[in-house]
Computed example of a mutant assay.
Amino acid sequence: MNADWVAASVRARAMARRRVGAGTCRRIAGRSSIAEALQDLEGTGYAGSGEEGGLEEAQRATSDAVLWQLRVLAGWLPASGTRLVRAAAAGLERDNILDLARHLDGGPERPEHDLGALATAWPRLRGATSREELGTALRRSRWGDPGEGGPANLADVLRIGWLRELAAAAPQARPWAATAAALTVGRLVLVDVSRPSDRLRRLVRPLIGDAWAEAADPAELRAALPVAVRSVLNGIDRPTDLWRAEVRAVAAVEDDAFRLLRTAMPGPSVVLGAIVVLAIDAWRVRAALAAADAGGGSEVLDAVA
């Protein structure tokens, strides 16, 4: 094994050990205000998150904290690891693109995530001055054709594109990507009751096929998915309960990531495990901050405990 992977794996495991953890997140969720919740983050990797703003600023700051960890980790990786960490960071590049699209549609301008060398297309996309110009720039980038439709379609197309890139960069992530794709289209056809765009169907097909597009309820959706993915919908009888499947999927992915951290030899698998553990830790922190901002208590965190 390349010595650089050994050093990167040691660093990745050390980063993962500095996560906030489920217990602290439950304590944060029990606070009665965002100000109180932020005090619990002092001394962690999220210290200072959104001190001058409200919930949105605090949640964005947690994402930026993970991005900073990715950028640090990238400095320890051999050249062969660049694609993996860039694929992980592409989830935040997607957020930048969506924020820009909303701004071009008349929404507020939001600060971008500073991707640095982990950017794939953002330096060429950020200068777009209209949705048409942004669409043209996307077609010429690794993100590809955004397809037809409004902001919701763009969000789903970019999400599936990101999942495919992550699965291509890390084969261990392919089952996770397929499950996430199934939940994305489940929400689209069962909750939003929306017809998927042709572009979205083409992107999803390599992960889960396209029989799902005609599903009318969770049972039909489950039957339409590949066998390896169906278990994510076990016990889900109503579209309004899909969030429970999403939370359960997060917990399963986290278990897989911890297994990689514990058992894998130094190499890409350890780094992937650390990245996922850190990302899910930030997801928990964001959920906990939202709960505190609402007055305390989180059904989502209780479900994933």
Rank of each mutant, 00 (worst) to 15 (best):
G150D: 13
A128Y: 05
L138C: 06
D145F: 12
I208N: 06
A137E: 09
G150N: 11
R131K: 08
L183D: 07
G106D: 10
G107R: 05
I160N: 13
G149L: 03
V204Q: 02
P151E: 15
G149Q: 09
D145I: 06
R164E: 14
A121V: 01
R164W: 08
D105C: 01
L138A: 02
W162P: 00
T129I: 08
V191G: 10
W176G: 15
R131L: 15
L200H: 03
I97F: 02
L134R: 08
L166T: 10
P123H: 08
V189G: 09
R205F: 02
R164H: 11
D105F: 00
R159P: 00
H103R: 08
S197Q: 10
D210R: 12
G161V: 01
W143S: 06
G116M: 05
D192T: 00
L104M: 07
L118Q: 08
A181G: 07
R102V: 02
G161T: 04
R205P: 00
D217Q: 06
E220N: 01
A119T: 04
L207G: 07
D114C: 05
S194K: 13
P151F: 12
A155E: 15
G106W: 06
D114F: 05
L207D: 11
L190M: 10
A137D: 07
P218S: 02
G150Q: 04
L221G: 04
A173M: 14
P226C: 10
E109F: 00
A215P: 12
L203A: 12
A211G: 14
P206G: 09
R164A: 10
H103W: 11
S194Q: 15
A224F: 05
L125H: 06
A223K: 13
A177H: 07
V157E: 12
R142G: 13
A101E: 04
